[in-house]
């Protein structure tokens, strides 16, 4: 009979481990989404260059509800050559497009600071739309120790 108990114990441990693993998994809203279709919609198929976008984000953000970020795009901001728009995407947020900013030659500098919500550790992507259908893209990785509270509704 001792063998039977052993099996039960084993099954129990396996079950407990599976439950613990399940609880640790991120909820549905926090799965990484493929943002490529969203980028393609903006660029209309033009491949963005992976340069010229500088993103300042803390390497570790203690609170995902308010993460400061600064974006700088290399551009002379003249009438002929300027940044028209800046898009911020967070691929693990339930709605990845955080904000769209429109600039122009009267901006003088393609630089924006803001505070965003991040639903967990992830890669933040910034897309800059320039004149003459040019696009620049830049990634930034950020570790979020306490995610923005948006998981409750989907638990």
């Amino acid at each position: 009979m001792a063998g039977d108990i052993q099996v039960k114990r084993r099954r129990f441990l396996a079950g407990a481990a599976a439950a613990a693993a399940g609880a640790a998994l991120p909820s549905r809203s926090q799965e990484v989404q493929d943002i490529t279709p969203m980028l393609d919609k903006i660029t209309r198929g033009v491949r963005p260059q992976r340069s010229g976008v500088e993103i300042e984000l803390p390497q570790i953000a203690e609170n995902g509800n308010s993460v400061p970020m600064r974006i700088r795009v290399a551009s002379p901001m003249s009438a002929e050559d300027h940044v028209k728009a800046i898009y911020i995407f967070a691929e693990r947020n339930p709605r990845p497009l955080i904000a769209t900013f429109h600039l122009g030659p009267h901006s003088g500098r393609a630089e924006i600071s803001t505070r965003v919500r991040l639903a967990g550790t992830q890669r933040v992507t910034v897309l800059a739309e320039l004149t003459k259908d040019r696009f620049l893209v830049g990634p930034a990785d950020v570790l979020v120790t306490s995610a923005a509270c948006m998981d409750e509704a989907t638990l």
């Binding site: 911020i88 497009l97 955080i98 904000a99 900013f101 429109h102 901006s107 924006i112 965003v116 919500r117």
Partner: peptide, 20 residues
Amino acid sequence: VFSAELGTGMSANPYMAFFA
């Protein structure tokens, strides 16, 4: 000189700094 469309990913009490 500046305009923005914001989503739910912006923090409460949204803050923005830009140039002109």
